[in-house]
């Protein structure tokens, strides 16, 4: 029987109860932050739109009717049509899938990589730390967009290469954070206890050190999502990310640039999608940081 009292109990009887209790407290604290809830709603909306794109989109995202080209927003085309007569709303809806895919792939590649490098550097210390952190600092000292641009230039344009380039530019932050986190507890007694039980270093890092760094990494990844979306859109805008006819938002803005003076909606509408989704991740990340990382709370 799950009750509030059982969830909030100060001495849980099982590990399960403790975990559920922690999740309940987090959820409760998050719910109290209206801006974070707005962010969560936006992210949920993005997920739903991406999942149900074929049912939500009124028209095809790639086929248009040339007779209807460059129509202003109307009842039939809520966001108007582009230069090939394609419905912009449908393209924006399908574009949610691309944006979500890029963001998820970058997070899946860069967060574990940064986490691994940061925890290994922090736990081992000594020259391992110096080499790994030296590498991290070099990557960290370069502007992210420029680094991603240079890598895309080398790898060639395209959505997969854009993902790889953004991930290469994104991991150092997570490594730094994970290392800082490890340093706060690397000499604590619970690690000594595990070591005396004969656990290998690999096991200690994977089972005991990494899990403790996950919450700060998640916060940072969520806060970074907006930046990742903007970088991906920027690459798309420059023609180096997703290629036509893929309805990527940045690439759509780039196409609309040619007729921005007379047909403003072509470039403007996908931009709103980018702003709303990025804002959603910013707001949710902010709220998540307040909840998971109370030390940071006072720091705006």
């Amino acid at each position: 029987m799950i009750t509030r009292g059982w969830l909030l109990s100060d001495d849980p009887e099982t590990r399960m109860q403790a975990r559920l209790g922690v999740s309940y407290r987090l959820a409760r604290d998050l719910m109290r932050n209206p801006l974070a809830m707005v962010g969560l709603m936006i992210i949920l909306a993005l997920l739903l739109v991406a999942a149900f794109a074929p049912w939500l989109a009124p028209y095809s995202p790639v086929e248009g009717t040339l007779a209807d080209r460059l129509q202003p927003p109307s009842a039939a085309h809520w966001m108007g049509t582009d230069e090939l007569g394609r419905d912009i709303l449908s393209r924006v809806i399908y574009g949610a899938r691309i944006t979500l895919m890029i963001v998820l792939l970058v997070a899946i590649i860069s967060a574990p990589l940064g986490l691994l490098i940061g925890t290994v550097a922090g736990y081992f210390g000594g020259w391992v730390d110096r080499v790994l952190m030296g590498l991290t600092d070099i990557f960290l000292s370069l502007p992210r967009l420029v680094l991603a641009l240079a890598f895309v230039a080398a790898l060639g344009p395209g959505i997969e290469n854009a993902v790889i380039a953004i991930a290469i530019a994104a991991w150092p932050v997570y490594a730094r954070i994970a290392r800082a986190e490890v340093l706060t507890f690397r000499n604590s007694e619970f690690l000594d206890a595990i070591r005396m039980q004969g656990a290998s270093r690999l096991r200690i890092i994977a089972r005991h050190v990494m899990p403790l760094c996950i919450s700060s990494t998640i916060v940072r990844v969520t806060l970074d999502m907006a930046g990742i979306i903007l970088t991906a859109a920027g690459l798309g805008f420059l023609g180096l990310g997703a290629q036509p006819p893929l309805p990527e938002w940045g690439a759509m803005i780039s196409r609309g640039r040619s007729f921005i003076l007379d047909q403003w909606w072509v470039a403007t509408m996908p931009g709103f999608a980018i702003v709303i989704v990025s804002l959603g991740f910013c707001l949710f990340g902010d709220g998540l940081r307040d909840v998971l990382d109370p030390k940071q709370r006072s720091r705006g």
Binding site: A226, L230, G234, F237, I260, A267, G271, V275, L283
Partner: peptide
């Protein structure tokens, strides 16, 4: 402040031009 993190610079530039 948050808008500064969420708005693509190139898009704001285009809208500013218009």
């Amino acid at each position: 402040g948050l808008a500064g993190y969420a708005i693509p610079a190139f898009w704001l530039g285009l809208i500013g031009l218009v």
